[in-house]
Nucleic acid binder design. Structure first.
Length: 424
RNA sequence: GUGGGUGUAGCUCAGCUGGUAGAGCGCCGCGUUGUGGUCGCGGAUGCCGCGGGUUCAAGUCCCGUCACUCACCCCA
């Protein structure tokens, strides 16, 4: 065992898998940029109270999964467990809400939850997310969902599903909540579940245990208790989703772990990931900004799990990072050639071509082996003969064909061959 | 936080009822003079997770510990 180990539950990505990680993150962010979302870079820690107020004191995320510490001034800070609260804070603090609405922002980076690690559940997790604040147009709900769906589709994923429901609003949810609590009162539940039913009854709905689900067959659901406004809103969202050709399943018992959600709520799950199947989710949060001291603006957003999406791609056998690391591999034979090779590699790199070369004195055979492993489609070979004649050999690794070109035209010749292959 | 499983070469793993370690892949080299991928030959690499105990003897049994892993809980 190595003397030092990464903290428990923290995934690390290094070659070759890190290429796939980057590709996934890029694929998740791309649709957001295509839809007019601007990038926001946020602190990874905030005042603890921001999360307590924003995410909700009764949530597991805040009550037992935060990394909280005191700074030297005695302030309580926490590593961010999710992204929305921080985005809201920044919008209010920087007066973004005074500008054009809706404010549309995307972000990416690490989040932290002190949970027991599991396949796809990490203490440092990567997410790509977005928020759209300042409009309750149901078309915006549909846009956010369609953007997430496009992100997964773009990667080639197919074994996933979208669950959708509406959680109502401050008008209709309290009454439903009463109704639900009354129903749960009559159920036979263990102490822990009973406690949850009292503090956050909705969360009992997605309890996985058979013993609990069996009692919930006739449980009242929120979608049947929506007020006029919420019902109209939800109908419109679904219509727009049809217009956007997004497929979903009605999930009246869908519950999310964060308290701020209202109205439209959704979750993407992948069927090949085991217990940690959620690959992304989000929803509307109409009262959040106001509760954080901002204007009374509604908002909607999502968070997509980068780690889990990568796992999903791997489970489906998708080759996300089809591209190799380099385009050209330079092989010098002998010390004189090495000096030429260093210059050649630098020139090629200056032209934007990705180049690696053979280091150490491993001989031509070994160098060619290294060239092969690098995955470069082209190899530039330089020996004493080439040094004498100021030339180089360009070898095409796919068919073994080799041609002599002058050093002056090398960069252009390599460029031409690469663009012919479509690698540039 | 609760329960189950596993920890042996870089990787995947084999080591039966205790006798001081193996395979495949990978890696390095060779198969003559300047060319990779196939094939053949050769080679290097292990505090058998860590600590303790039983024993003449422990990778193999017992206890502890750490790590990883699966599930619950929760969520991305």
């Amino acid at each position: 065992m190595a003397e030092f180990q990464a903290p428990k539950g923290v995934p690390e990505y290094f070659p070759p898998r890190s290429s796939a990680f980057l590709a996934v993150r890029e694929a998740l962010a791309h649709p957001a940029r295509c839809a007019g979302y601007g990038y926001i870079e946020l602190p990874v820690f905030e005042d603890t109270s921001l999360f307590v107020r924003g995410v909700g004191e009764s949530t597991d995320v805040v009550s037992k999964e935060m990394y909280t510490f005191l700074d030297r001034g005695g302030r309580s800070l926490s590593l961010r467990p999710e992204g929305t609260a921080g985005v809201m804070r920044s919008i209010v603090e920087n007066r973004l809400d005074k500008g054009a609405l809706p404010v549309k922002l995307w972000y990416a980076g690490p989040f932290f939850r002190a949970e027991r690690p599991q396949h796809g559940r990490y203490r440092q997790l990567q997410q790509v997310g977005l928020e759209a604040v300042g409009s309750d147009d149901p078309a915006l709900d549909a846009e956010v969902i369609a953007v997430a769906d496009e992100a997964y589709r773009r990667l080639g994923l197919s074994a996933y599903r979208l669950d959708l429901t509406s959680l109502g609003c401050a008008e209709c949810r309290p009454a439903y909540r009463e109704q639900l609590m009354a129903f749960l009162e009559r159920c036979d539940l263990d102490a822990a579940t009973r406690e949850r039913a009292a503090s956050n009854p909705l969360r009992v709905l997605d309890d996985k245990r058979e013993s609990v689900q069996a009692q919930l067959v006739d449980v009242p659901v929120m979608v049947d208790a929506l007020c006029e406004a919420c019902s109209t809103h939800y109908d419109a969202v679904r219509e727009f989703l049809r217009d956007a050709s997004v497929e979903w399943s009605e999930a009246p018992r869908l519950v999310r772990g964060l308290d701020y959600y209202t109205r439209t709520t959704f979750e993407f799950t992948h069927e090949m990931l085991g217990a940690q199947s959620g690959i992304g989710g989000g929803g509307r949060y109409d009262g959040l900004m106001e509760s954080l001291g901002g204007a009374s603006l509604s908002g909607i957003g999502f968070g997509l799990g980068t780690d889990r999406t990568l796992l999903a791609c791997e489970a489906e056998g998708l080759d996300v990072a089809a591209d190799g690391l380099v385009d050209v591999f330079v092989v010098p034979i002998g010390p004189a050639a090495r000096r030429v090779a260093v210059g050649v590699a630098t020139q090629l790199r200056g032209a934007g071509i990705r180049v690696d070369m053979a280091y150490g004195d491993r001989g031509l055979k070994g160098s060619m082996k290294a060239a092969d492993r690098s995955g470069a489609p082209l190899v530039v070979v330089i020996g004493d003969d080439e040094v004498q004649s100021s030339s180089a050999q360009i070898k095409n690794m796919a068919d073994g064909a080799q041609e002599t070109v002058t050093l002056e035209s090398l960069v252009a010749d390599v460029g031409a061959r690469l663009s012919q292959k479509g690698t540039l």
